[in-house]
Amino acid sequence: MAFEIKVSDLNGKKCFQFSGQIDEEAEFPKMDDMPSHVLVDLKDVKAINSVGIRAWIMWFGGYPQTQFSFLNCPKALVMQMNMVEGFLPVRSEVLSLEVPFFCEDCDKEKDVLFEVGKEISIEAGQVKLNFDKSTICDSGCDPELDVNELKYFRFLLEKASEQAA
């Protein structure tokens, strides 16, 4: 699926909706009037490869004065946020991300959107999760978080430390 950026307004801010695969075919447009604060919705991003990572880092790096707020981050990009130092722009925050669950009872995977400040909070240098498990799967099921909780959200702690410094 070809990469695309659609621009819209969301809650009074410019919103870039990224979609498709971020790879060697992806073109990031030059923005002459990049606003000082931009929302980036990643809900429809399917995957990213090394060429896409390079293009992402170079493009966001071209706007060092802009604050980027990332929404609906899929797992494939959360992986890069933890694995590639500098993947998240210096002036950026993550507002919401996919969190994988697995239910042994119904043998199904569920990716649930968690919001920072709602299901996810950062307290005393630790990530705390607060969510209602009963809403994730069918009645009677007991889905489990399918990540290493201490490490999956590490990029949030690192970002919080950077911003505090």
Partner: peptide, 24 residues
Amino acid sequence: KGVKNAIKQEEGKGAGIGSYLIYT
């Protein structure tokens, strides 16, 4: 150098981060 600096250093060429990703 870290991935970000490796990319900057090799501007215009493939930074070769694919091999690093596969290995990691």
